[in-house]
Computed example of a mutant assay.
Amino acid sequence: MSDQFVARSLDEVRFWSRIMKEHSLFLRLGFRCEDTQLINEANHFYTVFEAIENRSNAFTAGTDPSVIKRFNEEVHAAVTYIWAFKRKVLGLILTCQLPGANNFPLLVDHVSREANYFRNRLAELNLGRLEPLPDAIIDENVFFLRIMAEHAKFISHLLDPSERKLVEQANNFSQEFDQLLFQAKNLEYMRPQSQTVPLLDQFLDQNKVSVKALRDFKKTARDLIEACRIKSIIHPLLADHVFREAEHFLVIIDMFESSLKSKHA
């Protein structure tokens, strides 16, 4: 269990610290030039999470679990601070105190939910209280299906309106993942009776097919943006960022499928 704790902690911190670092950059790019205090705060968080990412990469699977536990506590504190910063920015936008800024309210809420997810995962790891498999399958999918649906919406709104075909594809993915999210919420409300192996297995299979399709769409969009072959205001790093999150979701689904098959056997 100690080895699993170290490996799982490092995987989570390495993935999400990079995500938090990039959130800082994206928020900064959306502020107005006169928002110097917010820009400075975003730059500070970029530095903080870059340092956390570098430190996490210096650890190995053989690191003392007590060292990783203390590291998780430090990271948890940093994530709590960036979560509070994101919620503050959301409040400023919704009370019309940042007119003309370019951060969508939904995007700021989206990145704050990811921060909250990250800090909750760190707390669970340190307490050794991860959810039972049937609950984890439903809860993780509810979380990530919403994330994927919102990615599609952001892509649609950040593409140039003249990119009609890509905008249509993004809107179709948005609707598809909204429907998958509604189905996941139905399964959530029906638990524990809904938590049978056949139902959970079908749930994962269905989601996996859609996530793979969205992942491939994001990869194509990323490659086109990097090659300057389409018109958009999407930062190339943002295109890669949402692609990596889809890849991460697929890894989680694969883990669940493997665990479900082992449990069934």
Rank of each mutant, 00 (worst) to 15 (best):
F177T: 01
L159N: 01
L187T: 00
S174L: 15
A221W: 15
R164N: 13
E168P: 14
A213N: 08
F177M: 00
S162F: 08
D178Y: 02
E188L: 14
S174M: 15
I155N: 10
Q206P: 10
V209A: 05
Y189H: 15
N172V: 05
D205N: 11
V167P: 01
I155R: 10
R229M: 11
D223L: 06
M148L: 12
I155H: 12
F143I: 06
E188N: 10
A170C: 08
F173E: 01
A152G: 12
L145G: 03
D160Q: 00
D178A: 06
H151N: 06
T220S: 13
A184G: 01
D205P: 07
A213Y: 04
R164C: 13
K218M: 00
K208Y: 13
F143Y: 11
N207M: 07
K219D: 02
S162T: 09
A213V: 04
L199Y: 06
F217T: 02
H157K: 15
D223N: 08
M148G: 05
F182P: 13
K153R: 15
F177Y: 00
I225D: 00
R215C: 13
V197A: 10
P161W: 09
F203T: 03
I230C: 09
S156E: 15
F143P: 06
S194V: 12
K231H: 13
N171W: 11
D216F: 08
L145I: 08
Q175I: 06
D223I: 05
D160R: 02
P161K: 04
T196N: 07
L224H: 10
S194Q: 11
Q175S: 10
S162P: 06
L199E: 10
I225T: 02
V167M: 00
Q206E: 07
N207F: 08
L158F: 12
L145V: 07
D178Q: 03
F144I: 13
F182D: 14
Q193P: 12
E163H: 02
V209C: 07
N172A: 13
Q195P: 01
E176M: 02
L199N: 07
K153W: 14
V211D: 01
L159A: 03
E163F: 02
F144L: 14
F143W: 09
S162K: 06
A170N: 05
F182I: 14
Y189A: 12
S156D: 15
M190K: 10
C228D: 08
L158N: 04
H157M: 14
H157E: 13
F177Q: 00
L166R: 01
K218S: 03
K218R: 05
L214R: 06
L200C: 03
Q206M: 15
L158A: 00
I155M: 14
E176T: 03
A184L: 04
S194D: 09
V211I: 04
L181H: 13
L145K: 04
E150S: 12
R222G: 12
E150G: 11
L180H: 01
T196E: 09
K218P: 00
Q179H: 11
F144S: 15
D201E: 07
R146T: 14
R191L: 00
Q202C: 06
F177N: 03
Q195T: 04
K165P: 11
L180G: 04
R146F: 07
F203I: 00
V197K: 10
L181Y: 05
R222N: 13
L145S: 05
A149D: 12
R191G: 03
